[in-house]
Design a protein around this nucleic acid. Structure first.
Lengths: 242, 242
DNA sequence: GACAATTTTTGACGATCCGTCAATTATGCA
DNA sequence: TGCATAATTGACGGATCGTCAAAAATTGTC
């Protein structure tokens, strides 16, 4: 059965190759310029073969988004293991997100695109479900330090605040910043916003200070945390799929 | 020349009609299902006529985004005239944004779509420039109460904070929330986020408290502000273009 | 009102792209 | 080797974007 295995591995490798080239085309030329005929020509395979891997053009982009999520989970998991206070760990996750969006913007861009195009209807059910499962996994990772902070009273939530609501706040900062810089760059440039990182970290600090999550940024230097995390996480950050 | 004027007005009316129907099709069926042949049939005009109004499909969507910005500016301008503290006025703008995204989500969706598709290359230069000018106008409106707050020391900015940076923070909350609810609704539902408004207002309050913008939310009930603004602004909020 | 010049409208057409499928080629197995 | 199964191909149908020469409508003039 070694021949069969060889063939199967060959097919798997081909899928990675297809995705790699497709990602390049998608990022450099945009969704509308990503043509399957062109992809077929670029990869020296026929269109029929490509359709054996992906049920539609949208399904292909979904596969790219899945890759992106997997890569993100990889980074997040490592950041979550940072040893420090709950707020430091939350901050580590924000740093990981920032790192991801910066170093792997092409991956992230696939996620944005797949969520804007009507993926829900056109991607294959398998990939749709897998993508959703991965996103839920990410949610769980981010939720963890927050619930822990509530348990050990680093963070005391009042009123109608819940850990999930805190996640939503962080999600808005991250997503709003990413989306803004990708799509409103010209207008943001005019207000001096050209790079996410410093603003994102300051925003998050103000937000967490507002929630009174100990230690406050006045009592602890979180820029060190981010720096250490960035370097640790970045250390063995492999550029899979170029 | 009254006949010429009549003809010209006829053409202008036709453009509004085209945009109205196109917006419905875009919102109900998505960008990919917005076909110019179908639009031609629905409006009982020919495709050639449509191309006399819009240089391309993307240009049409740009025109929709322009309408959206104009409507937004209308709401923002009125919210900006709210008489109250600087922070109340900033809050009024957030409320206007929320109102806009809620009551005119179809308009807003056009803005998102046009910024995701490669508008930059395919829309007509005129509409591209107009859209950018409108966005800059919006920026100016939002910037005003912040700079005023800095001037009268309701808000004291320390470190590397600037009014523009505060705008960016608010922008992230608003955009991140909108984008999230439009595109990540299934995952957000699982954490109990189904409606923007309450979370958005709470988030903004925490953020502005973190910036120490007087009066703090513990000393003033901003929910009243939003309620009043929503009703005042909503009062003569005409649903132009259905 | 008739007729010519100009503007507007039309829809057929070429080009492009997605997804299919019958025919062809390659592979596994006895 | 020879047959059965699996993989690959590219031509094709259907749909859509944008163009353009021909047709229709409008304007201006006598």
């Amino acid at each position: 059965m070694s021949t069969l295995t060889r063939k199967q591995r060959e097919i798997q490798n081909r899928e990675q190759m297809l995705l790699g080239i497709a990602r390049t085309m998608l990022v450099e030329q945009g969704f509308s310029h990503l043509g399957l005929d062109r992809l077929a020509e670029a990869t020296e395979y026929s269109k029929g073969t490509i359709y054996q891997h992906f049920s539609s053009k949208e399904d292909l982009v979904a596969a790219l988004a899945i890759q992106s999520c997997e890569k993100r989970i990889d980074l997040f998991s490592r950041a979550a293991e940072y040893s420090g206070s709950t707020r430091e760990r939350a901050f580590a996750l924000v740093a990981a997100d920032e790192l991801f969006a910066e170093r792997h913007s092409h991956f992230f861009r696939c996620e944005l695109i797949i969520h804007m195009a009507n993926l829900d209807e056109k991607a294959s059910p398998e990939r749709r479900e897998r993508l959703q499962a991965l996103e839920q996994e990410i949610l769980g990772i981010v939720l963890k330090p927050i619930t822990e902070a509530v348990q050990n009273r680093d963070l005391v939530l009042t009123g109608n605040w819940t850990p999930e609501k805190v996640v939503f706040g962080l999600f808005c900062f991250a997503m709003g910043g990413h989306f803004g810089l990708q799509n409103y760059s010209s207008i943001l440039k005019q207000i001096g916003v050209t790079s996410r990182a410093p603003h994102l970290f300051d925003n998050v600090n103000i937000f967490l200070d507002g929630l009174n999550w100990k230690q406050l940024s006045s009592d602890f230097d979180y820029s060190k945390t981010t720096k250490v995390v960035m370097q640790e996480v970045l250390a063995d950050d492999d550029n899979v799929g170029n």
